[in-house]
Computed example of a mutant assay.
Amino acid sequence: MDIGVAPNSPVPKAKSPVGRIITWSLIGLLLLIAAINSVATVQFGHVGLYKTLGKLSDNTLAPGIHFKIPFVQKIIQVNVQVTKAEADTSASSKDLQPVSTHVALNYSVNKESAYNLMNNIGGGFDTVIVAPAIQEIVKEVTAKYAAEDLIAKRDVVANEIHDLLTKRMAKYDLIVNDINIVNFKFSDAFNQSIEAKQVAQQQALKAENDLKRIQIEAQQTVAQAQAEAESLKLKKQEVTPDLIALKQIEVQQQAIQKWDGKLPSVTGGATPFIDVSNLSSK
Rank of each mutant, 00 (worst) to 15 (best):
Q252L: 13
V47P: 00
I137D: 05
G45Q: 04
V141M: 01
N37C: 13
I27R: 11
V42G: 02
S281V: 06
K167G: 09
I75H: 01
A223Q: 09
A6Q: 13
A114K: 11
I161H: 06
T52F: 01
N119R: 02
T101A: 13
D275T: 03
L234F: 12
Q81M: 07
E250M: 06
I65F: 12
K15P: 15
N177V: 00
D2G: 11
V18H: 06
S231E: 08
K74Q: 10
A270K: 10
S57D: 01
T267G: 12
D242G: 08
F190D: 00
S280A: 07
G54M: 00
S265P: 11
A40K: 11
K111D: 06
A40W: 12
L232D: 08
V39D: 10
K15L: 15
L56T: 00
Q81A: 04
V182A: 06
I161D: 14
K247Y: 09
E208N: 14
V156C: 08
G269N: 05
A40G: 11
L263K: 08
L164Y: 02
P12D: 06
S16V: 03
Q254T: 04
F71H: 04
L53R: 07
K206E: 12
K55H: 08
A200K: 15
S113L: 07
H66K: 02
N59P: 07
I27N: 02
P70K: 01
I249W: 09
S16L: 10
A204S: 04
I137K: 02
V138I: 10
T221C: 09
E86L: 05
H102L: 05
E86T: 14
A34P: 12
Q237L: 10
A196W: 03
V109H: 00
N159R: 14
P12E: 00
P241C: 08
T240I: 01
V47W: 03
Q97D: 07
L49Q: 01
L32T: 15
V109Y: 03
N79D: 12
V199N: 15
T221K: 15
N59I: 13
T142R: 00
S108Q: 02
K84N: 09
L211P: 07
I129Y: 01
D275R: 05
Q202C: 05
P264K: 12
F44K: 14
I3S: 04
N37Q: 15
S108T: 02
M169F: 03
W24V: 14
K167E: 07
K13G: 01
F71V: 05
E238L: 07
L205P: 02
T83F: 01
K206Y: 06
I179M: 03
P98E: 06
D95S: 07
